[in-house]
Simulated assay, not measured.
Amino acid sequence: MLKTDYLSQLRQRNPLIHNITNIVVANYVANGLLALGASPIMSSAVEEMDELPAICQALVINIGTLTAEQVKAMLIAGKAANRHGIPVVLDPVGVGATCFRQQTVAQLLQEIQFSAIRGNAGEMAYLANVNWQTKGVDVGQGDADLDHVAKKIAQQYRCTAVISGAIDVISDGKQLAHIQNGTPLFPHITGSGCLLSAVCGAFLAVAQQHDFPALVEAATAYAIAGELAAKNLQPQQVGQFYTALLDKLATLDSTQVQQLARIDDD
């Protein structure tokens, strides 16, 4: 059972979340944050990366459609965010797919302190140097112990690791949580994971460095919104789910999250 209510704080404070994200999902992520109660700013202009962290409450870095110019922006913004003490989230989309992505993520992890890293099992297994078969940005297949993967990433990079999937796994290196909420429709729409990373950023923005419980609540609330959006939909109704998820993020309340949460804590 959840003992926190960061969702209410988020809606009261309306934090400004800076997203350096990919062109495929920028609109959906922005609308998802607005629905949840946060304010998005979507920018990767190098010229303003040093200034934005001073007015934002969190930074989310997503490498989905990576360019060399964007890498420069990420590094500048990430270092500025660290200086200003705001949380930074990394979404290492398809990190194992190409050398460019691998090299970029290695550099980001070396030069920026992240509060959270959120990815699917394939992406996170790559970061943990665990064998896993991936295809592009898809989750792929493997039989690694995801509890071990999450703990290893959290300990190595001094952050909280969030592995999203049929069961979400979250660890800060010591604590561990499994979130059983969700829907099989999530992988069938573009941007569901990217939006979750932004939602993580929004919850961290109001968590006052209580990162682990904030991320457990963030992932749980998002998964429950998905469950509610998928209710009464057929597996093929992905377009309706795409829209319904935004609606449920907007109407979701703390009572629903408390009542519907299915969390196993270790």
Rank of each mutant, 00 (worst) to 15 (best):
V139E: 13
Q102C: 00
L176E: 01
V29P: 04
A198E: 00
P87F: 12
P187H: 08
A125H: 00
G119L: 03
E47S: 13
I263L: 09
V60G: 01
Q12M: 12
I17Q: 02
S43R: 03
A214D: 05
G226H: 02
V238M: 12
K72F: 10
A250F: 13
G64V: 08
A35Q: 12
Q209T: 09
E227S: 02
R118A: 02
L196A: 11
V149A: 08
S8A: 15
H178A: 03
E123H: 07
E123L: 06
A218P: 08
C56E: 01
Q103M: 12
F212K: 02
Y28C: 02
D138W: 10
A128Q: 08
T134M: 09
E51H: 14
Q180G: 12
H210V: 03
K231E: 12
C194M: 12
L109N: 04
D211G: 01
A221H: 10
D5E: 14
R13C: 10
Q9N: 13
V206A: 12
Q113M: 10
L185V: 14
S164C: 12
Q110I: 08
A26P: 06
R118H: 10
V257T: 13
A214Y: 00
N27Q: 13
E123Q: 11
V149N: 00
D266T: 09
L196G: 05
T4A: 06
Q110G: 05
T220M: 05
I189L: 01
T4Q: 08
N131C: 10
S39C: 13
H148G: 04
F203V: 04
A205Q: 04
A154T: 11
G37C: 05
D138N: 10
A73W: 01
E123A: 08
T251V: 09
N129P: 03
D172R: 04
D211V: 01
A54H: 13
I63N: 09
S8C: 09
D138K: 00
L2M: 14
L66A: 08
A219K: 00
A225M: 12
Q236V: 15
Q155W: 07
V60A: 00
V162L: 13
P187A: 05
A219I: 00
S254Y: 05
L245G: 00
E48L: 04
A81P: 00
N22I: 04
I224D: 00
I17K: 03
D172N: 15
L52K: 08
F203Q: 02
A121H: 03
E69P: 02
T220K: 06
D247C: 14
L185F: 09
G37T: 04
I167E: 08
Y6Q: 05
L66S: 07
Q70T: 06
A144M: 09
I263Y: 09
L7V: 03
N62M: 10
P87E: 06
P40G: 10
R11I: 07
I20E: 04
A45D: 14
L66G: 01
S192V: 07
G78M: 08
G165K: 11
H148Q: 15
H18Y: 05
D168M: 01
A77H: 01
L195K: 02
E69Q: 15
I189P: 00
N120K: 11
G85V: 12
L2R: 06
